[in-house]
């Protein structure tokens, strides 16, 4: 275990709110989309944190906030002890090479007008001063590392399959030797038979480079496979987090239970009790009162509509935000 006590990344009470504007000339703020609303989570060095949630849960917004791609309105993101949110643009720059991202869609995440060499050498150009031959060496090294060939360097992204493109995107993310990678649905757009290849590659790289990984996905099976710790998000909040094995074996939050039970399974034996939730995820601009999940929760009582449950630790490292997690209805 390389993970030491000190977390690499510590997010505390993070809030990312997007104002909704109305009007052409005099913009009026009509409301707030609370995409991320008071999230606290920490990641140790070398750990893989799985961030699970449905669309609108705020999982991608959270990832983007760490990268400085949006502007949180509250809380802190402390990276190795430094609060990234307090840094100016210039002071933040060194962290751009320490934190990298892999996107979901390998078709839109690579510039179609740039060759693979241009794409991979760009981060080097920005962050390291190298000679031309050094560039070439690093790029070809990295191509080899992700399972592509040196000969691919002068080709354009459209000449590659989806899986190969995702390999290029991964190479671009790790070529500057970052500490932290945010992988936002990195295998969701890929064919089933390719997903496993890319997951294996990520696992290999994570281990050989001692990467810390935040793996964002809606796919619970994939997250279960790769993550050490899993955090489940619903409407901008983390409703449950626990070590992966524990979370899947003993989910405490009714939302997590429903989410896990909803995954279609090939195995008839595991298809026993499905919890079908009523309704849909409410709009983050107008979340329900109390516990945000209560209108869809099969176990909700009056209290859930009035008071918001705080996250509480029910077992070592196992947090859940539900009034009834202590006596989970099973």
């Amino acid at each position: 275990m390389s993970a030491d006590g000190m977390p690499l990344l510590n997010i505390a009470d993070l809030k990312v709110h997007f104002p909704i504007y109305r009007g052409l000339l005099w913009r009026k703020t009509m409301g707030l989309v609370k995409a991320v609303d008071g999230v606290s989570v920490s990641v140790r060095r070398g750990e893989v944190l799985g961030l699970v949630g449905e669309s609108g849960s705020g999982k991608s917004t959270l990832g983007r906030a760490v990268l400085g791609l949006n502007r949180p309105c509250g809380g802190s993101i402390s990276y190795g002890g430094v609060d990234l949110l307090r840094l100016g643009k210039r002071e933040f720059r060194p962290y751009r090479s320490k934190i990298q991202i892999i996107f979901q869609d390998p078709y839109s995440s690579l510039n179609p007008r740039m060759t693979v060499y241009d794409i991979l050498s760009e981060p080097l150009r920005v962050h390291e001063r190298l000679t031309r031959s050094e560039h070439r060496r690093r790029v070809s090294e990295m191509l080899d590392r992700v399972g592509l060939e040196e000969a691919h360097m002068n080709r354009y992204p459209h000449e590659f399959s989806g899986g190969q493109r995702q390999r290029i995107a991964i190479a671009r993310a790790i070529i500057v030797r970052p500490d932290l990678i945010i992988a936002d649905e990195p295998v969701s757009a890929l064919d089933v038979s390719i997903q496993a290849q890319i997951l294996n590659l990520l696992v290999d790289l994570q281990q050989s480079f001692q990467l810390t990984l935040i793996f964002i996905s809606h796919d619970l099976a994939v997250v279960r496979h790769i993550a050490d710790t899993v955090a489940v998000m619903y409407l901008g909040k983390i409703v449950e987090s626990a070590p992966a094995d524990r979370l899947y074996a003993r989910p405490l939050n009714p939302y997590t239970q429903a989410l896990i039970s909803a995954v279609p399974s090939v195995d008839p034996a595991t298809r026993a009790r499905r919890i079908i939730l009523k309704g849909q995820i409410p709009s983050p601009s107008d979340p329900p009162s109390g516990c945000h999940f209560h209108p869809r929760c099969p176990h909700a009582v009056d209290r859930c509509a009035r008071e918001e449950p705080p996250p509480a630790e029910f077992a070592p490292g196992h947090h859940s935000a539900c009034w009834f997690s202590e006596f989970p209805p099973s």
């Binding site: 400085g68 751009r96 760009e122 962050h127 995107a169």
Partner: peptide, 28 residues
């Protein structure tokens, strides 16, 4: 909106470079 632009921002590529290396060639 495309992710390759976001990727460039996240990588720390400067604004002029994003405009003239990433965006303009795609609008040629």
């Amino acid at each position: 909106q495309k992710e390759f632009v976001e990727a460039a921002v996240a990588m720390g590529v400067s604004t002029p470079s994003i405009v003239f290396r990433h965006l303009v060639p795609n609008v040629l």
